[in-house]
């Protein structure tokens, strides 16, 4: 077993193990930290397979931005002991039966698909410029569609935010300035 294989299997095992922990932890913040570890492990797997650009983006985008926002929300909600107890109620053993069966079917399909293909590990490294050429060459349509989707999300977020602003303005105008000055500590 050569060094490259160890470099692949160790982070792969960590990724699977920490993902299992993400699902089974009752404390939301613990689960998110395990999710970060899982994403970092997947980034190492990408790196070893010869895709350093994908590995870097995995850390920058997923671990560095998206999960931070998840953790941000968990902190804002300040989930305490009651939510841990509620999670414990949800994670009863009989809850695992149906997801377990479905995941097992997927696993069989995956083995079936991969059984015939030749294992391709490290050897060729994909430089960032090749990723760029692929994205703006054959996959241009996908990039544009993703752009549409993000724009739609942006417009949607702005719409929700504007409704909030309008409601607040209505409240401020409706109650007059006296209440505002008193309630706001004379700001």
């Amino acid at each position: 077993m050569n060094a490259d294989l160890v470099l692949f299997w160790v982070p792969a095992a960590i990724a699977v193990f920490s993902t299992a922990l993400v699902i089974t932890r009752k404390n939301a913040s613990r689960a998110l930290v395990y999710l970060v570890i899982s994403l970092l492990a997947v980034a190492v797997v990408f790196f070893v397979l010869g895709a350093p650009f994908a590995a870097a983006l995995e850390v920058v985008v997923y671990a560095g931005a998206i999960v931070v926002l998840f953790l941000f929300v968990v902190m804002m909600l300040n989930l305490g002991r009651s939510s841990v107890l509620r999670e414990g109620g949800w994670l009863r053993p009989n809850m695992w039966v149906l997801p377990g069966i479905l995941a097992f079917v997927l696993l069989i399909v995956m083995f079936h698909v991969f059984a015939g293909t030749q294992a391709k590990t490290a050897g060729t490294e994909v430089p960032p410029s090749a990723v760029g050429r692929a994205l703006f060459g054959p996959y241009l349509l996908a990039v544009e569609l993703a752009g549409f989707l993000l724009l739609a999300a942006l417009v949607g977020a702005y719409h929700l935010g504007r409704r909030y602003l309008e409601e607040r303005r209505a409240v401020v105008e409706g109650t007059g300035e006296g209440v505002d000055a008193g309630g706001d500590g004379g700001r």
Binding site: S29, V33, V36, P52, F53, A55, A56, L57, V59, V60, A63, G64, A65, V68, L71, F72, M75, P127, P128
Partner: peptide, 25 residues
Amino acid sequence: DVNIALLWFLAMSSLAVYGVLLGGF
């Protein structure tokens, strides 16, 4: 000298957020 050195810097500085976030939490 990796060819993603610049992204490595961005990645590591974005991981530093977790220290601050978890410390305060």
